[in-house]
Design a protein around this nucleic acid. Structure first.
Length: 195
DNA sequence: CCCTGATTCGC
DNA sequence: GCGAATCAGG
């Protein structure tokens, strides 16, 4: 694969959007995240203030190290600074997430309602944490999921408003910490079985 | 361990 | 110019 115009274009776009090099690499296909990073540097659009490795570049900052050769510049030199980071995403957030997986009792009222002691107590905090986390979710598509991205589904699969959490999973688990919290309930008193 | 970006350097 | 290897930080 080579860096065609279109590919570079997408690279720029995604990089500007704050996508990680690895994500961009996946999207582009045929390249590794290293390739992406390398290209990003060659293109000159590197630092994003975010991510990692904040310092390091400007290690030695001369007090008055002004290079005289920077003076002459006929052109205004439209330094690429399209948009710092105003609001990458409008965030529709039209509706409040009712916490899909946190199943509400789907039991037709008026039924015996089995034991169900006081299960369904996924610690309100955990639930709150979930809805909070969903705001920071990576919102990955099915194909973007990896072995280590939270596979917690959010939204309605029938809508375009559907995605997977995508945050880093808890080692060994298929979900991120917050979702593991509500996915794996203590499965409390299950010993009714043997009465 | 997983991830991130940054840099180097042989190709 | 390219990107794997490596480095460095979280």
């Amino acid at each position: 694969m080579s860096w065609t115009d279109e590919r570079v274009e997408l690279l720029k776009k995604m990089w500007a959007e704050g996508q990680s090099a690895s994500q961009i690499a996946k999207e582009l296909g045929g390249v590794t995240r290293n390739a992406v990073i390398g290209k990003v540097h060659r293109l000159g659009l590197s630092n994003r203030t975010t991510g990692t490795t904040p310092a390091k570049s400007e290690a030695k900052e001369k007090p008055a190290a002004a290079k005289p050769e920077v003076a002459a510049k006929p052109k205004p030199e439209p330094r690429p600074e399209p948009a710092p980071r105003p609001a990458p995403e409008p965030k529709p957030a039209a509706e409040a997430r009712p916490t899909p997986p946190a199943r509400k009792q789907i039991i037709p009222a008026g039924q015996p309602l089995p034991p169900q002691p006081s299960a369904n107590e996924i610690s309100p905090e955990a639930l709150a944490k979930v809805s909070e986390v969903e705001k920071k979710a990576k919102k990955l598509t099915l194909m973007e999921l990896t072995e280590r991205t939270c596979k917690w589904p959010v939204g309605d699969p029938a809508t375009d408003d559907f995605w997977f959490c995508g945050l880093p999973t808890q080692p060994g688990k298929p979900y991120c910490e917050a979702h593991v919290g509500v996915a794996f309930q203590p499965m409390s008193a299950r010993r009714d079985r043997r009465r």
